[in-house]
């Protein structure tokens, strides 16, 4: 029993990572009605920016917030330059663009910072805060940061006019234009925000998995799984989904033959299971409409 509890808490700590990424996936999905396969790479690149800033002597939190700002601008610029010209192209073209972005960002990081692993600091320390090695300070900090971010997003989308305009622009672009919303600008804003959230996720994850150009590939899959479990239309659901995936993944270690190498298959199975049984996810909103 004690073992089970231990695994659950450990799962929550890794789940916080997935929750972060799931949140940024849902964000961009809400902003542009798309899943961005380059999302993880953008987060990775942002983390390198933070690392570079600290190499140049910036204090952690200074680097943290500057990185968020830079990432926002980068996300915005990528939308305006790369994505905008093909905005009306079919989904297949979009996926190719995401693949291209993936390749470009991944290789640029390797080009600038090499493919070797770099340690990344945590602002929270690594001491245990709960029992014997159950939850590290960094794990707790990560959960807290995710919570704060989620709260801020909720307030932004629920109570600000820009948030409302962004939701409207993604749900119904034509109608949004007809009430005077500049839809293209909103899309770019969505990319910017998603990049900023991704940057936070990357900086939170890097101390755990170390910094290298491929650090996000598998984590992105868990993030997807979390987003799908929670529902792609629900930021809160995505966070829950992220934590759930972390816990389930840890608990699966009790199943015989399920070594560490099978963990990704759990994410796969979860995605397919949820998409098949309840495509809108546990908390996703079903869209009711009359014709």
């Amino acid at each position: 029993m004690e073992q089970v509890v231990q695994q659950i808490i450990g799962g929550l700590a890794t789940g916080a990572i997935y929750a972060c990424i799931a949140l940024s996936i849902v964000m961009i999905y809400q902003a542009i009605d798309h899943l961005n396969f380059a999302q993880g790479e953008m987060a990775m690149f942002s983390t390198y920016i933070a690392w570079q800033l600290m190499q140049w002597g910036a204090p952690y939190w200074g680097a943290f917030f500057i990185t968020i700002a830079i990432s926002f601008v980068l996300g915005y610029v990528i939308e305006r330059t790369v994505f905008k010209p093909v905005h009306n192209a079919p989904v297949l073209s979009h996926i190719v663009i995401f693949i291209a972005l993936f390749a470009i960002i991944n290789s640029m990081a390797g080009f600038i910072w090499e493919f070797t692993i770099k340690p990344f600091p945590t602002p929270f320390g690594t001491k245990s805060v709960l029992g014997e090695g159950l939850l590290s300070a960094h794990g707790a900090g990560m959960i807290a940061v995710t919570g704060v971010m989620l709260g801020m997003l909720y307030l932004f989308f629920r109570y600000t006019r820009v948030g409302l305009a962004m939701r409207a622009a993604s749900a119904n672009p034509d109608s949004a234009r007809l009430v005077g919303i500049r839809v293209g600008f909103m899309n770019a804003l969505g990319w910017g925000m998603a990049a900023a959230i991704g940057a936070v996720a990357g900086m939170m994850i890097a101390p755990v998995v170390f910094l290298e150009p491929n650090m996000m590939v598998t984590i992105l899959l868990y993030g997807f799984a979390g987003a799908v479990v929670g529902g792609l239309t629900s930021p809160g659901g995505a966070v829950f989904g992220g934590f759930a995936v972390g816990v389930i993944e840890n608990l699966a270690s009790f199943v015989p033959h399920f070594g560490a190498e099978m963990k990704l298959s759990i994410a796969l199975a979860l995605i397919i299971l949820v998409l098949t049984l309840k495509p809108s996810g546990l908390f996703g909103r079903r869209i009711v409409s009359r014709v």
């Binding site: 972005l101 993936f102 390749a103 470009i104 290789s107 390797g110 080009f111 090499e114």
Partner: peptide, 14 residues
């Protein structure tokens, strides 16, 4: 940092 040519391949491809 130290640029490595290998890194640019993905960029060109993208």
């Amino acid at each position: 940092g130290e640029q490595s040519a290998k890194g640019l391949t993905g960029t060109v491809y993208g």
